[in-house]
Design a protein around this nucleic acid. Sequence first.
RNA 1: GGAGAGAUGGCAGAGCGGUUUAAUGCGGCGGUCUUGAAAACCGUUGACCCAAAAGGUCCGGGGGUUCGAAUCCCUCUCUCUCCGCCA
Length: 423
Amino acid sequence: MLQLQALRQNTQAVKDRLAIKNFKNIEWIDEIIAMDDERKRLQLDSDTAQSKINAASKEIGQLMAKGQREEAETKKQEVVSYKSLLQPIAEKLEQVEKELNDKLVLLPNLPAAIVPAGKTPADNVVVREGGNKPSLSKDAVPHWDLIKKYDIVDFETGAKITGSGFALYKGQGAKLQRALSHYFLDFNTAAGYTEYLPPLMVNEATAYGTGQLPDKEGQMYYMPEDNFYMIPTSEVPVTNIYRDEIVKEESLPIKMTAFSSCFRREAGSFGKDVRGLNRVHQFDKVEIVQLVHPDKSYDTLDEMVQHVEKLLNSLELPYRILRLCGGDMSFASAITYDFEVFSAAQEKWLEVSSVSNFETFQTNRMKIRFKDSDGKTKLVHSLNGSSLALPRIMACLLENNQEADKINLPAALHPYFGAAFIS
RNA sequence: GGAGAGAUGGCAGAGCGGUUUAAUGCGGCGGUCUUGAAAACCGUUGACCCAAAAGGUCCGGGGGUUCGAAUCCCUCUCUCUCCGCCA
């Protein structure tokens, strides 16, 4: 959620920035400011009325103590009249506050200055590429054939058990998932991240905190009996660990990592790029999250990008890093770098990580703050990134390293997988 | 799932209808003393709305009763104890 103060102080800049994000209702900014003006007026009126009521009530107490019942009764009538004045003001105030908040909550985060303008993924900017694309033999096949050949992922049985888009990992496939998640977690904790294993369902307040609600409930699986949502990423529970807390400045940065399964309905995204492991409803991912001092968040962003890059290098996969354009960024993000690996047999770039700085957008919703050296309470900045999403990494490992009768694995995984290849 | 108890400031814990603008203790911060530290003593110590002052809001969340609610009522959530079920 954007800060009202910023809207008021930098009105034109906010409008310009929102335009880069292709936000359609720019006129909302002026409407919100007008509502806030009204809110302030009503607040003042309400406070004044309440103040009179409080003072009179106190007098009644004193009169009663002295046994002056009649005077007390007169005062009571006075308070009743104050209250009838207050009531319509209070109702109006509540209504204005609600309307204001409903609109404010639907404003996306402002893109950072270096975010390129643009509407579609075609407008994203390639920052750099790394690793080497393999030269596959003419017999090379995509991963959906390889998983059958080695019998390591079974989508048919997954569909039988649950539905389309639910993978059943088996044998070496299941073990590779385990190896990847352990390797990723070890890699992250070695860099100072504290490991968490969070709940996979969250309540409304948590889903609201990171920006999933109110706008994206259609993307999450929902349990109506308990009013819980299945998490689309562990970013949601992990970032909310510090919701409603004022942390000590010296405890920053707070670095957290978590493995979790992720659940996404992927409503409306079917038809393209959904084969095999490219897009599924349930997948595993290791996430990194940081809560940092506002002055440091862009340094942290670079640090996290480098961290993920190092991890991809250790997996010996060809990758590229994209700076997303305004139109392709998520609702809550101020800047996002996407990491894609090249899946050689399907000749496609697959997104395996997305590293973002949310600045105060999430922490303003969650009220995660710290006290600075002047004793002022300020919002921290939140960032997160995948390190990494497992299925697409697996697809890429399978395709890029395939030989006639085996699939080689990068050296980093050997101790975790217990072998150098899948056969 | 059943029965009972509870939720108060960073923590502990009193208050159970009107000097609570929330006692007291611990912790934190500042000071006195000390070569320094500890102890002792003194002072100070939350968040939110408002440009600020004044004022207002906040005792788990929401609603109600009342001139007045931390205190009474309803409801929801969570915690604890016992019983039941269960990996």
